[in-house]
Amino acid sequence: MRALLVVNPAATTTSVRTREVLTHALASELKLEVAATEYRGHARELARRAAEQGSVEAVIALGGDGTVNEVVNGLLEHGPDPDRLPRLAVVPGGSTNVFARALGMPNDVVEATGALLDALRTGSERLIGLGHAAGPADSRDAEVPARWFTFCAGLGFDAGVVGRVEAQRARGKRSTHALYVRQTLRQFLGDPQRSRGTITVERPGEEPVTGLVMTIVCNTNPWTYLGNRPVYPVPGTSFDSALDVMGLTSLSPAALTRYGTQLLRSTPERGVHGRHALSLHDVPRFTLRCAQPLPFQLDGDHLGVRTAVTFSGVARALRVIV
């Protein structure tokens, strides 16, 4: 099999030596081309070129969730076509690696490489659904490109946390779970919208749900990890169903304590629940709309601010080696 290995040399948990060893291991089973990313968006360009040229049967992303997201968007530049497009494979190299772990991959880069080699030898793969986000036709936002996501999106509070973390990383801070916790507290103290929700969920044929202060859109479970602890906002979320939505109408100190505790104790069967909590399961299409621009993120990548985003769950969009 011909394959392209897209390597993020800035991946948090891999060294040059580790990348050399796993590259050699993959080359023993594949006709392997290796390309290192040089700037943000480069992984997308590499994957797009590979898909358009039909030069490989698989594209392997070595990096964190941001690298994986870029590769997925490159592969699906012209839309999903799993029978024609290269397969996706992932070797986790980031700090959290939600997508790889949701697929059942080990979080250790060496163990994950071994698991990938086993999957290649046995031909193990699966079709997964993806999320798609685009600006609705009546949006007040400047025109922004549509984008695919693999495991989560957010409008409001959690996206603000992601933006704060990215700002800290740009100053040289390492991406750690402690950094996320600190920035969550700072976002809580500095968010003027947490006491009056302005986000509305609009679904075809349904009454709008109004007054949300934060929204999380999930394509699979878990939503994220705190260390090795998985976090499940909505039970039953899966790559095999459409999208799920968790929203809160209050982020008072009492509500933050209550729902934060629920997230920490969540399981695949029990997520966030209560008077101020909204849970929607298996929703194929909906729009999040807000009264003023709010932070927006996809797969942990901060994308600025938006006043409206339309989401779609696309079944069987991509073939993954796993």
Rank of each mutant, 00 (worst) to 15 (best):
A146G: 15
V314W: 13
S238M: 00
E143F: 05
H276Y: 09
L32N: 05
G123R: 12
H276R: 11
L155N: 05
E33K: 12
D138F: 03
T96N: 04
D65P: 00
L263H: 03
L256A: 15
A255K: 03
E125L: 05
R229P: 11
A11Y: 04
R258S: 11
L85Y: 09
G274W: 11
S312P: 01
V245W: 10
S266L: 02
R285Q: 13
V72S: 02
G131K: 01
D282R: 05
A27W: 08
N97F: 01
T184I: 04
A25C: 12
V144M: 11
R40H: 12
A10K: 11
Q187C: 10
P284G: 02
G160N: 06
P82R: 07
L4M: 03
A254G: 12
S139P: 02
G63D: 10
H132F: 15
T96V: 15
L243P: 05
R182F: 13
Q168T: 08
F188M: 04
S95M: 07
V162Y: 11
A133S: 05
N97P: 02
P106R: 00
I216V: 15
V181C: 07
E52G: 07
A277M: 02
E57A: 14
T67L: 03
A61S: 14
L117C: 13
R84K: 14
L76H: 07
L30V: 02
T184C: 04
R87F: 08
E57S: 14
